[in-house]
Design a protein around this nucleic acid. Structure first.
Length: 428
RNA sequence: GGAGAGGUGGCAGAGUGGUCGAAUGCGCUGGACUCGAAAUCCAGUAUAGCGGUCUCCGUUAUCGAGGGUUCGAAUCCCUCCCUCUCCGCCA
């Protein structure tokens, strides 16, 4: 959520900056709503003040044993107008809230301007794609004999669910543990175990709601019909890790807060049908090791670069070639002020594919969450929040299978993972 | 799932219709005392919003959340959420 103060004072330039990311701010609607708000709020508060003052006098009169009926008659006429004004104000404020909740974050000045993926800017390329002396198979074909089973996933649940067995399941677990160990032991993140099901307020905090409900899975208690608050499966543990500071005022000394966790992620991704239908690139359920940092506003861009490095470490240790891309204004997510994607080399696709996305949301989420910090005797200030994958486990598995495949159908275990695989060097 | 008790400021805890944004204690900040410290004393100490003559003044809202009764609600009524204790069940 943007600072409404900014919209009031600098509407035109906010609109211009949002246009760069393809969002057209309804200036007229805002202006009308804001004018109405001001008039109704002022009037409402006048009436409330009058009511409060009069009621107080009634109290004083009665306590002295005086007759209060004259004052009582005076305030009696206030009721209807006050009630109408309060109701109208509530409607306007709800409309304003709804308006603000649907406006995306402002892009940072360093973000390249562009319309789509095409306009993203490559920052650096690391590692050299391996040259194969045989015809490479994609991860579906490499994985099948090793326990990567899409048919069973489809039988149990439906399309875009995967079942893994034997070496595949073990490799998957090894990857997650390796990532978690690096982030906690070497990069200073605190390991967390979080709920996989959250309430709507939590999703509003990080910006998935109200705008992106169609991308989520909802859950209800067995046998329950409609009643009760809706709960949702987390689409990423950014949601749970970031919301730990919702409605909190943390001490400045406790910053930065660095959290990590390994969780499944559930995404219905309505609208992505037809894309990446083969294999486990795009699933309704996948695992991810997430990094979240909650920092002082002045430190957030420093933290962003640092987090990109934390994610890169994983790829480097696994010996996977990748590139770092700075997303353009048109390709960034709703809450991000700046985003870097890490794209890993997939030989079967002969392309780099997204494996991590690291964003600085500045105060966008913090404002929604009322997540603040206080230094000394100062006023509470909004924090900055950052999140990034370190990394997506499923896609990393895909990358390992494709990059480490051998002519005989076996897959070499990257040395970094061997301690997690009982020293195993090859999957066959 | 059954029975009961609760949710009040940074914390503890009082307040069952009226000058209550809320006693008191602790904590914290400033000051006095002191060579300095402790102790003691004095003062201050929530958040958000709105308006203005905008380092200040005025005003509104907030006592788990939402609704209701009332001129007036922390206090009464309804719904929901959460916590605790005991029993049951379960991993």
């Amino acid at each position: 959520m943007l600072d409404i103060q900014l919209l009031r004072t600098d509407l035109e330039s906010v609109a211009a900056r949002l246009l760069a990311r393809g969002f057209s701010l309804d200036i007229a609607a805002f202006t009308v709503l804001e004018a109405e708000r001001k008039a109704v709020q002022t009037r409402t508060q006048e009436l409330q003040a009058k009511r409060n003052a009069t009621s107080k006098q009634i109290g004083i009169a009665k306590s002295k044993g005086e007759d209060a009926s004259a004052i009582l008659a005076e305030v009696a006429t206030l009721g209807d107008e006050l009630k109408a004004a309060e109701e109208k104000l509530a409607v306007i404020q709800a409309q304003m809230q709804d308006f603000l909740q649907n406006v995306p974050n402002l892009p940072h000045e360093s973000v390249p301007v562009g319309r789509s993926e095409e306009d993203n800017v490559e920052v650096r390329k690391v590692g050299t794609p391996r040259v194969f002396d045989f015809e490479v198979k994609d991860h579906v074909d490499v994985g099948a004999p090793l326990g990567l089973d899409f048919d069973t996933g489809a039988k149990l649940t439906g399309a875009r669910f995967t079942f893994m067995k034997g070496p595949m399941a073990k490799l998957h677990r090894a990857l997650a543990q390796f990532m978690l160990d690096v982030q906690t032991n070497e990069h200073g993140y605190t390991e967390c175990y979080t709920p996989y099901i959250v309430n709507a307020e939590t999703l509003r905090g990080t910006g998935q709601l109200p705008k992106f409900e169609a991308d989520l899975f909802a859950a209800k208690k067995g046998g329950q019909e409609g009643e009760g608050e809706a709960l949702y499966l987390i689409p990423t543990s950014e949601v749970t890790l970031t919301n730990t500071v919702r409605d909190e005022i943390v001490a400045a000394e406790d910053l930065p807060i660095k959290l990590t966790g390994h969780t499944p992620c559930f995404r219905s991704e309505a609208g992505s049908y037809g894309r990446d239908t083969r294999g486990m690139i795009r699933q309704h359920q996948f695992d991810k090791v997430e990094m979240v940092q909650i920092v002082h506003p002045e430190k957030s861009y420093e933290a962003l670069e640092e987090m990109v490095g934390h994610a890169e470490t994983i790829l480097q240790r696994l010996g996977l070639p990748y590139r770092v891309v700075s997303l353009c204004t048109g390709d960034m997510g709703f809450g991000a002020a700046k985003t870097y994607d890490l794209e890993v080399w997939l030989p079967a696709q002969n392309a780099y594919r997204e494996i991590s996305s690291i964003s600085n949301c500045e105060a966008f989420q913090a404002r929604r969450m009322q997540a603040r910090f206080r230094s000394g005797q100062g006023k509470p200030e909004l924090l900055h929040t950052l999140n990034g994958s370190g990394l997506a486990v499923g896609r990393t598995l895909v990358a390992v299978l494709e990059n480490y495949q051998n002519a005989d159908g076996s897959v070499t275990v990257p040395p970094a993972l061997r301690p997690y695989m009982g020293g195993l060097e090859k999957l066959a």
